[in-house]
Simulated scan of single mutants.
Amino acid sequence: MLENAFIMVAIIFIINIVYVSMFTVRMILTLKGRRYIAALLSTVEIVIYVVGLGLVLDNLNEIQNLIAYALGYGLGVIIGSMIEEKLALGYIVVNVTSSNPDIKFTQQIREKGYGVTSWYSYGMDGDRLSMQILTPRRYEISLYELINNIDPKAFIISYEPKQINGGFWVKQVRKGKIRQHQENQLQEQEKPEDS
């Protein structure tokens, strides 16, 4: 009997982890405009939800089932957000302000495949170089590292645009130049050095 209770707790726990993870991913897909994939995922998600909730409600007098349901829900949120980070859907726009108005900053970022629009601006302490950079979310960290290598004191603000339409920016980024550049860098690092 104790073994059956343990199996029931494990099933409820796992079902809720899967359900909430799928729920989190579905919400993100919906927000990103991928409604058909989100609808397909929600069909599976609701079946899992009903089964898990049914198991808990059928055995409501067993407190361990309720605890397993709650713990599975919490862990599902964590796992769902980790899955979303790995998927890294969509784009971000990064606004950078550098106290060094040297145009080479912009060129170095463009050479890595990022779409950049730059202009001169004036701050409290003088001339600045301001840039707006578009990147797929999966390259966000690489972009921050690149900016930090060029100008560790650069002021950075990023946000996720709701809609992107037209322009050189989108074509440049969609061509995969960033990925191509990163693959080339990995190949360079893997080459044995000449002695």
Score class of each variant (00 low, 15 high):
residue 186 L to Y: 11
residue 19 Y to E: 10
residue 112 K to E: 11
residue 59 N to L: 05
residue 188 E to F: 13
residue 123 G to R: 02
residue 131 M to Y: 10
residue 69 Y to R: 04
residue 46 I to D: 06
residue 66 L to Q: 12
residue 77 V to C: 10
residue 2 L to A: 12
residue 100 N to Y: 09
residue 114 Y to L: 02
residue 169 W to D: 15
residue 38 A to C: 03
residue 45 E to S: 09
residue 183 E to S: 02
residue 120 Y to C: 09
residue 179 R to D: 12
residue 50 V to K: 01
residue 16 N to M: 07
residue 172 Q to F: 01
residue 165 N to M: 14
residue 48 I to N: 00
residue 41 L to T: 06
residue 115 G to L: 03
residue 92 I to V: 13
residue 166 G to D: 04
residue 170 V to E: 13
residue 27 M to Y: 12
residue 112 K to C: 00
residue 166 G to V: 03
residue 118 S to E: 07
residue 122 Y to P: 01
residue 39 A to H: 01
residue 114 Y to S: 06
residue 39 A to P: 00
residue 3 E to N: 13
residue 160 E to Y: 10
residue 174 R to V: 05
residue 42 S to W: 12
residue 32 K to F: 08
residue 34 R to I: 08
residue 41 L to G: 06
residue 68 A to I: 00
residue 189 Q to W: 14
residue 87 L to W: 02
residue 152 P to S: 08
residue 1 M to K: 12
residue 73 Y to P: 05
residue 88 A to F: 08
residue 108 Q to V: 03
residue 166 G to Q: 02
residue 72 G to Q: 00
residue 82 M to K: 13
residue 154 A to L: 06
residue 150 I to G: 09
residue 67 I to V: 15
residue 187 Q to M: 10
residue 62 E to W: 08
residue 30 T to V: 10
residue 70 A to W: 09
residue 17 I to A: 04
residue 4 N to Q: 14
residue 155 F to H: 08
residue 74 G to S: 14
residue 30 T to W: 02
residue 69 Y to W: 01
residue 159 Y to N: 12
